[in-house]
């Protein structure tokens, strides 16, 4: 007859895992339920303020008002792209179409940048990490500024 020690040990460990995981799941569910009670009646905008902060939410709303839904813009990441900032801003501004030029710190010279900017895009949006508010700049001002810096 085969020994029953190892199956009992394995089942015992599984029972411990289950006890811990069910406790954690109950706690997480309870926390969500509590949050639901606290947040009842919130508008989508208030939810966004709670999750992303007031400055980011306000800046996105302002950009949405400036660029029409069928419009286009040039997106630049003011922080390392791996932090995700250009993705969050692109999502929040969709369906407005974006042309992504890369990170601010490693942009190409102005002449080459201009070739990559479609005529339809009159605005430049610079996204920053940690939900710092994105910056909206008119395209010609952005180009002027880059030329000035390049000249210097």
């Amino acid at each position: 007859m085969r020994s029953s020690v190892f199956p009992r040990l394995a089942l015992g460990l599984f029972a411990v895992f289950l006890a811990i995981s069910i406790f954690q799941a109950a706690r997480a569910s309870g926390r969500s339920g509590l949050l639901l009670l606290q947040a009842r009646g919130e508008t989508p905008s208030e939810e966004r303020v709670r999750a992303y902060g007031p400055e980011y939410t306000r800046a996105i709303a302002e950009i949405r008002r400036t660029i029409p839904e069928d419009g286009a813009y040039i997106l630049i990441s003011g922080s390392p792209e791996a932090e995700g900032a250009p993705y969050w801003v692109k999502y929040d501004l969709a369906p407005r179409r974006a042309v992504y030029l890369g990170e601010l710190g490693s942009l190409q010279p102005v002449e080459r940048l201009r070739r990559r900017m479609p005529r339809a895009a009159r605005w430049v949006v610079i996204a920053y990490d940690a939900y710092r508010p994105p910056l909206l700049i008119e395209r010609f001002r952005f180009v002027q500024e880059r030329q000035r810096r390049q000249g210097a």
């Binding site: 799941a25 997480a28 569910s29 309870g30 926390r31 969500s32 339920g33 949050l35 639901l36 947040a39 989508p44 939810e47 966004r48 999750a51 992303y52 995700g84 993705y87 969050w88 692109k90 999502y91």
Partner: peptide, 21 residues
Amino acid sequence: VSAGLFAEALVFPLRDWDGRM
């Protein structure tokens, strides 16, 4: 757990990476 997840869906806007990206 399903009810908790549903509550979570009601309370938060999107916070995940791929979902927004």
